[in-house]
Computed example of a mutant assay.
Amino acid sequence: MKHPDWYPAWRQEAIEQLNAKNRGLQDDFGVGSWPRYDYDLKTGKLLFSDQVVVKVVAEIQVAGSTSGKGGNWLWAWGNSNLPGDVVTDAQRVRSFGEKNGIDELTQLFVTDDNDLTVLGWELAAVMARICNARGVYRSPRGEGGGLYLTIKSISRAN
Score class of each variant (00 low, 15 high):
residue 22 N to K: 06
residue 23 R to M: 11
residue 24 G to R: 14
residue 25 L to D: 01
residue 26 Q to H: 14
residue 27 D to R: 13
residue 28 D to C: 01
residue 31 V to F: 04
residue 32 G to F: 07
residue 33 S to I: 11
residue 33 S to D: 13
residue 37 Y to T: 02
residue 37 Y to K: 08
residue 37 Y to H: 14
residue 38 D to G: 08
residue 38 D to I: 03
residue 40 D to Q: 07
residue 41 L to T: 03
residue 42 K to R: 14
residue 42 K to G: 12
residue 42 K to F: 07
residue 43 T to K: 15
residue 43 T to Q: 13
residue 44 G to F: 03
residue 44 G to K: 05
residue 45 K to R: 15
residue 45 K to H: 10
residue 47 L to P: 00
residue 47 L to V: 09
residue 47 L to F: 09
residue 48 F to L: 12
residue 50 D to A: 10
residue 50 D to F: 01
residue 52 V to T: 13
residue 53 V to S: 11
residue 53 V to A: 12
residue 54 V to C: 08
residue 55 K to Q: 15
residue 57 V to F: 01
residue 58 A to T: 06
residue 60 I to Y: 05
residue 60 I to S: 00
residue 60 I to P: 07
residue 60 I to W: 02
residue 61 Q to T: 04
residue 62 V to F: 07
residue 63 A to S: 15
residue 67 S to P: 02
residue 67 S to A: 03
residue 69 K to E: 11
residue 69 K to Y: 10
residue 69 K to Q: 12
residue 70 G to M: 10
residue 71 G to C: 06
residue 72 N to M: 06
residue 73 W to Q: 03
residue 74 L to S: 10
residue 75 W to E: 03
residue 79 N to F: 07
residue 79 N to C: 01
residue 80 S to R: 15
residue 80 S to L: 13
residue 81 N to P: 01
residue 82 L to G: 05
residue 82 L to H: 01
residue 83 P to N: 01
residue 84 G to F: 04
residue 84 G to H: 06
residue 85 D to P: 00
residue 86 V to S: 02
residue 87 V to G: 01
residue 89 D to I: 00
residue 89 D to K: 13
residue 90 A to C: 13
residue 90 A to F: 06
residue 91 Q to M: 09
residue 92 R to P: 00
residue 92 R to D: 11
residue 93 V to S: 11
residue 93 V to P: 07
residue 95 S to W: 01
residue 96 F to H: 13
residue 97 G to D: 07
residue 98 E to V: 12
residue 100 N to E: 12
residue 100 N to L: 03
residue 100 N to P: 02
residue 100 N to K: 02
residue 102 I to V: 14
residue 102 I to F: 04
residue 104 E to D: 13
residue 106 T to V: 15
residue 107 Q to Y: 11
residue 108 L to V: 12
residue 110 V to G: 04
residue 110 V to W: 01
residue 111 T to L: 05
residue 111 T to D: 02
residue 112 D to T: 10
residue 114 N to T: 15
residue 116 L to S: 11
residue 117 T to E: 13
residue 117 T to S: 10
residue 117 T to N: 13
residue 117 T to G: 12
residue 118 V to A: 12
residue 118 V to Y: 04
residue 121 W to R: 11
residue 123 L to N: 06
residue 123 L to W: 06
residue 124 A to L: 06
residue 125 A to Q: 04
residue 125 A to W: 02
residue 127 M to W: 08
residue 127 M to R: 09
residue 128 A to V: 06
residue 131 C to R: 02
residue 132 N to P: 00
residue 133 A to N: 02
residue 135 G to F: 09
residue 136 V to F: 09
residue 137 Y to W: 14
residue 138 R to D: 06
residue 139 S to A: 15
residue 140 P to N: 09
residue 140 P to M: 07
residue 141 R to I: 04
residue 141 R to H: 08
residue 142 G to P: 03
residue 143 E to Q: 15
residue 143 E to D: 15
residue 145 G to A: 09
residue 145 G to C: 03
residue 146 G to A: 14
residue 147 L to T: 12
